[in-house]
């Protein structure tokens, strides 16, 4: 026996509209996802490019390193200095700042490191022991570039008085050291020097 059961359905118009709506919603989700991924990728890639460009544009020159006699005491071979003056010339393509100075002796032992960790608290920069100071302040001192730019003289003072030099935080006159200067974008330059003063 045949049974007639009434079946209900949406009209063709409604079906089309629903399909379009579903498509748009799905499409919007896809677009959002694609845009999000592309944006994130662009941001990372752009930052990398910017870092590379800044690095390539950065160039610092150590013009001179001296140990003022006023910062030295004792007599050879026990003459020590705790003040070092470093002249930095920026001949890169952009205004720059120095991120850190690091001095190691011939055996690779770090003698002094002035790191840019807390520019508002100069006393906290120094590693391995606090108390190192750099004047003018490293990260906030702009090194101009261009034909009229001139070297900037930084004075690095170690925390230990020469009289109490422990051979860790002072420079021994006549000893051999390596100075590394790091720019804010990662460019570094090393010079080798003999302490004299």
């Amino acid at each position: 026996m045949r049974s007639w059961k009434r079946r209900h359905a949406v009209s063709e118009l409604m079906g089309t509209l629903i399909m379009i709506g579903i498509t748009l919603v799905a499409g919007a989700a896809v677009i959002g996802w694609v845009n999000g991924q592309a944006g994130a990728s662009e941001q990372v890639y752009g930052q990398n490019v910017a870092n590379n460009v800044n690095y390539l544009s950065e160039h610092l020159v150590v013009v001179n390193v001296q140990f003022p006699s006023s910062g030295c005491s004792g007599t050879s071979p026990s003459r020590y200095c705790d003040v070092m003056q470093i002249s930095i010339y920026n001949n890169g393509a952009e205004v720059d700042t120095v991120s850190s100075f690091t001095v190691v002796d011939k055996s690779g032992v770090t003698q002094a490191a002035v790191a840019q960790t807390a520019p508002t608290s100069p006393g906290a920069w120094c590693a391995p022991s606090p108390g190192c100071a750099a004047s003018p302040v490293l990260k906030t001192t702009s090194l101009s570039t261009g034909p009229t730019a001139q070297p900037t003289v930084f004075t690095v003072t170690l925390p230990t008085a020469p009289a109490a030099c422990t051979l860790v935080l002072c420079f021994t006159v006549g000893s051999f050291y390596t100075l590394q200067v790091m720019g804010q974008f990662g460019y570094s330059v090393q010079v080798q020097l003999t302490a004299s003063g």
């Binding site: 013009v63 001179n64 390193v65 001296q66 140990f67 003022p68 006699s69 003056q85 002249s87 020097l193 004299s196 003063g197």
Partner: peptide, 9 residues
């Protein structure tokens, strides 16, 4: 610039 034998300006 001028420096002496000890490298001092």
């Amino acid at each position: 610039f001028v420096t002496n034998f000890a490298g001092q300006l």
